[in-house]
Design a protein around this nucleic acid. Sequence first.
DNA 1: TTGTATGCGTTATCAA
DNA 2: TTGATAACGCATACAA
Lengths: 345, 345
Amino acid sequence: MTQPGPVPKPPTLRDVAQRAGVHSGTASRALNPRTRSMVNSDTVKRVLRAAAALGYEPNPIARSLRTNKTHTVGMFIPDVSNPLFSSMVRGVERVLSEQDYALLLADTDNSVERESSLYTALRGRQVDGLVIATAQRDSPLIDRMLTDQVPFVLVNRVSLEHSTLAVTGDEASGVRQAVAHLAGLGHTRIAYLAGPQRTSTGVVRLAAFRQSMLEHGFTPLPEEIVECASWSEEAGSEAMARLCAAGLAATAVVAGNDMIAAGCYDVLREFGIGCPDDVSVIGFNDMPFVDKFSPPLTTVRLPNRELGEEGAALLLDRMAGQAPIAKTIVLPVSLVVRGSTAPPR
Amino acid sequence: MTQPGPVPKPPTLRDVAQRAGVHSGTASRALNPRTRSMVNSDTVKRVLRAAAALGYEPNPIARSLRTNKTHTVGMFIPDVSNPLFSSMVRGVERVLSEQDYALLLADTDNSVERESSLYTALRGRQVDGLVIATAQRDSPLIDRMLTDQVPFVLVNRVSLEHSTLAVTGDEASGVRQAVAHLAGLGHTRIAYLAGPQRTSTGVVRLAAFRQSMLEHGFTPLPEEIVECASWSEEAGSEAMARLCAAGLAATAVVAGNDMIAAGCYDVLREFGIGCPDDVSVIGFNDMPFVDKFSPPLTTVRLPNRELGEEGAALLLDRMAGQAPIAKTIVLPVSLVVRGSTAPPR
DNA sequence: TTGTATGCGTTATCAA
DNA sequence: TTGATAACGCATACAA
């Protein structure tokens, strides 16, 4: 059994310098790839060898204090436990870790207050940049980042007020594909269960729906477009119930996302309305297990993980001064046709 | 339109001290609750006022350099995009942020090498502690943390070799409840689709299954216990197919987790075997949407978020020197009975 | 090409 | 109770 014993202090730059027989400044230059050219290649070799022998790792804290860079990126999301966002987190984390950046995660819980206090905390920790996947439209976050001049990129949302770096799925195309698919099946009366209009995604999708309907020459009745209180199953149920109560004449329903579609399923079953026999349903996001629904859900797949990856890459470029201040990357989305859509009868 | 303009440098301790007419050392003591008692209460007031006026925020980098504490905790998980883990992350993040700790997330992707290099990276960043939710049994991670004497807590797993801090669901009870439920319905031939035995969870659940069967006086045939290559739907399908190929005599199947159960569903359908009519199925985890399966999946619910919360709290205690070095907290689990289980016919 | 010196913003030690 | 001063480990401007 090994004794606990004190942990030996990690070697510092000076230890390395001493062992290599040079001064710490030289060791610093030799170790830093960017300044390495300033030093004799023999010396470089000696320093490198000494560093390796001692198992030297630069102390990022000290480095940060000196350089004002932390090699750390913060990410704001409403809720990690939502698969939609966790996929983005995964993408972000993956790209960052490849470049030796660390990810500081902040769950805002959809609270603007919490977002604000977390922002202060992250700023205090001197994150070099921020990935924003929260989409509350009334949040002052973007303004604050702009005045603080901290590099950031919006993921899965855009700003209507400012031009910024952003990576987003082609929401409009997704909605268009959904409507076109239904139209192709012969549907003409299509209802829409919109996500909350206080979120960026909510308004973008709804606008795209209206536009798509127009393009097909369909004119949805006002009561056939109902806004959900949140992106949840419960809100979806509630909205769908309202739709049914109003006397459902539509033969198809497009839901703002899969959660809402799931709520929709519940109400359909409750009312004894068959899917897809009586009404077709389309969701959004292609969340895990929606292919196991009965019937399996037709839905629009967003490249969430890629969204995160592209966002992180863009931010990294920006922080390196390689990217413009504003630029929007739009990633393609695809309709995944499953069993919840069929011709109207 | 406001001009970009340079961002004013944030005020430092010396700015505060100057404004309060004291020395920076005094200001430091006045600001720090722990040392505040050493300073005249009038002076404290002056300093506090000055700090507030300037909007002073201590620079955590400088503080860390001095104190060797970063107020940062790292978390290792196999995959954030798995709802199981993302719930834990949420729990951890929640508790940490309440105490002004930040969470550094590290996705190991089930790779021991990646885990190792991420560990080096996080150590370098001087995290004050670690939450470990990866469960590869052959990983040297625990040994390294032990020798490095970095505080850590295991979540959703235990170490068979060392005694450590750990928070886990009552896996054995979960399995027992599952088996008891099936036995109560009249099943006597129960098969088990085990998770990979290189994971801690995999072995714990399998052992519990064997034990539970024994307690009921049931003796599963060797071919009725099959190990899946991973915790995935595909692996579940494959294992279930093997079970069927061997001539399925069991009337019920317990799956190592919900993913495996989902794979099981696919094969059942393929073979034209009815669930729950011909065979009952039980999963593990109660993942989102398993209630939407057809039939809705009976499963064991683990308090994943609470696991994360308790883990973080325990780690915080430990880091404050308030918790013992080794202690296991076991959280209760519950069986959620849905449509995939019924009496055998 | 290398050495020297200084400072990043804090906390802690030692005097006063 | 307060002030002065020295680190913490690194990067860099300047000198040699």
